[in-house]
């Protein structure tokens, strides 16, 4: 067994790594091609055999995005909506998650159970009346209207609750005995302790608000207010032939979320594990 095992080991190892490597190439190729084509001159991406990398890299497509297509405006729209959604949702969900995890009130567990049940309802089911409601409230075509769905999230409350439950009760009791009010306890005791899960939540909200398409498409009817994905989908219809230009637009759309993901990867992955294993 040991002789055969030690001989089989290198072969197995090579096979495993080869499989992982092929998978990695396959996974990255579409993204690499996107970046490569975005640095090509107009027309260069439409030739045979297809090129993965530009002959002379040029930034002319990116210049065109900001001059001819005015994508800076949409980039700015996306940044405002995403950053506001992220900050507000951290505050709202952290407070609620703390209440459900550590404070006692009547009906707490029943309400929480109902909230979890709501996770199986597809978001699209309520979208038509939500649009009509926001129309009545005068929020169609506003940043506020665009960020409404991200403010309170059941998943966010769930993540914070699970995390805050690991904070020892004695800590909170001691603070109360010392005469700290409930708000002081939340701000100065709880928030610093739960910072890791807030990073997780922030990454989740940032990525989903930035990447979302259907809701901003519905609620933002004035093209000046379009978020980047909505503007990109619109342009992709008009500029079907401009492959290189559209690839530059795609890079511009994906780059911010990619950076946020790479920086906050650990926090983000922790959230997926927490949601997946315990959910």
């Amino acid at each position: 067994m040991s002789v055969a095992g030690s001989r089989a080991r290198p072969i197995r190892s090579v096979a495993l790594h080869a499989a992982l490597f092929v998978g990695a190439i396959g996974t990255l190729t579409p993204l690499l091609w996107m970046v490569g084509a975005s640095l090509m001159k107009a027309g260069e991406a439409n030739q045979l055999p297809p090129r993965l990398f530009p002959k002379d890299p040029t930034l002319e497509q990116y210049v065109a995005l900001f001059t001819r297509l005015d994508l800076a405006r949409h980039f700015f729209n996306s940044v405002i909506i995403t950053v506001a959604a992220t900050m507000l949702s951290i505050l709202i969900n952290a407070m609620a998650g703390y209440a459900f995890g550590k404070l006692h009130f009547r009906g707490r567990d029943r309400i929480f159970g109902t909230l979890l049940g709501a996770l199986v309802v597809p978001a699209q089911v309520g979208m038509l009346p939500l649009f009509l409601l926001l129309r009545e409230m005068g929020l169609v075509n506003t940043y506020m209207g665009a960020l409404v769905p991200y403010l309170a999230s059941v998943l966010g409350i769930f993540l914070v609750r699970q995390y805050v439950m690991s904070v020892p009760d004695e800590l909170i009791h001691a603070a109360r005995v010392d005469g700290a009010g409930e708000f002081r306890i939340f701000w100065t005791l709880i928030l610093p302790v739960i910072r890791p899960i807030l990073a997780t939540l922030a990454t989740f909200v940032f990525l989903s608000a930035w990447n979302d398409f259907m809701w901003p498409l519905i609620i933002l009817s004035d093209s000046a207010k379009y978020t980047l994905p909505v503007a990109l989908a619109n342009l992709a219809g008009e500029h079907v032939q401009d492959v290189e230009l559209m690839m530059a637009g795609s890079v511009l759309t994906i780059l911010p979320v990619m950076i946020v993901f790479l920086v906050f990867q650990r926090a983000y992955v922790r959230g997926i594990m927490a949601g997946g294993v315990k959910g």
Partner: peptide, 23 residues
């Protein structure tokens, strides 16, 4: 490898749909 395999998950679906239309 984990980061590479995970990368498409965080991409914007509109953008990758545009990319794949050309692929």
């Amino acid at each position: 490898f984990r980061t590479i395999y995970f990368a498409p998950v965080v991409t914007t679906i509109v953008a990758v749909a545009v990319v794949w239309r050309y692929l």
